[in-house]
Design a protein around this nucleic acid. Structure first.
Lengths: 248, 248
DNA sequence: AAGTGGTCTAGACCACTCG
DNA sequence: GAGTGGTCTAGACCACTTG
């Protein structure tokens, strides 16, 4: 009924959609501690009456809060403020070129090695393909302001990507090319610290043994292994930053 | 889908709710490349007719896909398969005790230092409080199987947390205590690699200069700085792992 | 057995943009 | 100006769980 628009207009004191206002309100009560951990949130029907909206709107809000982990929903019992179990942080791992350009530094790269070969036993641990599969083994050094910024060591499963033969990885970095070619993918990241070995140190222009941040990523698309990459950053020149807000 | 493939058809369509089935279907078309980057997705009304459901149900699905970043929605024009812009990885940064226990190792910790003092200039960079604020400065070494596992250096804003005086941080680790006391929070993470300095090396029982993974986290609650913590892991003994799937 | 959340519908109005 | 997505409603039925 159009009558309800009058009622909701009255509440229109704050910005955003009805969702947002209700969500902010409830989130505020949880974040501030007014509704402590374990507190039972009013039932959907009651909230709907309180906010003067339909139950679906409230449901949408509570569903979102549950997905964010602020509340837990139990059938028949109701919804409860949940205990913060794990701090989850969303890392945005972007294109290296963009990474460099966001630092206001000129970007460049060179490719010391491109080799096509058959997968060996050691590769299986990295790329998850049968021995004998044709793979591309690439080393790429990314430069920021003319200085080494990141060492990229990559394996590509040639049978899972079309048109790799046509790609010229001396003109476009392999990571960027793959991003534009492979439709969508799932990935697994592993982040750790390691001392630079002799080869790494030389290619990055740092002293052997320097602490480096290492990001290893394995990527699948449609169930097939696509690529494995190890990105090595000199530790003092790079940091991953992630922010986290409750309902995001 | 033909009637003869009853079994597979059943598996396809029996994957939970109507949302899920439609979402999986559309996600499949995007992930497989059947709908390439830039492809315009059918309008909501058409999808609703195709799937035999109401527009709201389709809207829910497309909204979810948009939130996951697989599609972009433009008013009047329609929805389009978007280019994978950044690889976003969700890190689950859990309680250190749980971390250790998940390794099937006995957990223990000791607290070499607990000091209450006024915030100095150097602290401002870390904790985001005015000079002179009462803070707690804690160092905590977490042990796994009797060996140092992680060094925790923490500052707590005493004016933002109630009951800190009653807490005995020799019995419960500060991180765990805070997690149970502070309602909810936003956080900022910074991850990098660093060589262990003399103090760190001694407390972790490793050689000076060893590559370490450093996680720094600043936490706010209700707009006020709560705590800042630096977790230092010996690089070869620890890794952060994150997985990523398109629509999660 | 009752009440909860989970889901879905068939409409509706709006703001915004593009053909 | 027409068509898109964005949002919201007032119902409805179901599955499940717990008092």
């Amino acid at each position: 009924m159009s009558v309800s628009t009058l009622v909701t207009a009255e509440r229109d004191t704050e910005a955003g959609t009805l969702h947002q206002r209700i969500l902010n309100d409830i989130e505020g009560k949880i974040v501030s501690g007014e509704w402590p951990i374990g507190h039972r949130i009013p039932f959907e029907v009651d909230l709907a009456r309180e906010y003067g909206c339909s139950r679906m709107t409230v449901n949408k809000v509570l569903t979102q809060l549950a997905r964010a982990g602020l509340i837990e929903r139990v059938k028949k019992s109701g919804s409860f403020v949940s205990q913060p179990h794990t701090q989850s942080a969303v890392l945005e791992i972007s294109d290296i070129r963009k990474e460099v350009e966001s630092l206001k530094l000129p970007y460049a790269f060179n490719v010391p090695r491109v080799a096509k070969r058959k997968a060996q036993g050691a590769d299986r641990l990295l790329l998850d393909v049968p021995v004998g599969t044709a793979i591309l083994d690439i080393t790429c050094v990314h430069l920021a302001g003319g200085k080494p910024f990141c060492l990229e060591q990559r394996l590509i499963n040639l049978s899972s990507v079309e048109g790799v033969d046509q790609a010229d990885f001396t003109k476009i970095p392999p990571g960027q090319w793959l991003l534009s070619q492979v439709p969508w993918s799932s990935a697994e990241h592993r982040i750790h610290a390691a001392a630079a070995d002799a080869t790494t140190a030389e290619q990055l222009g740092i002293a052997q043994g320097t602490a480096c941040l290492v990001i290893e990523r394995r990527t699948w698309s449609a169930g097939a292994a696509v690529t494995q990459v190890r990105l090595t950053y000199p530790g003092d020149r790079h940091a991953l930053v992630a922010t986290f807000t409750p309902s995001s």
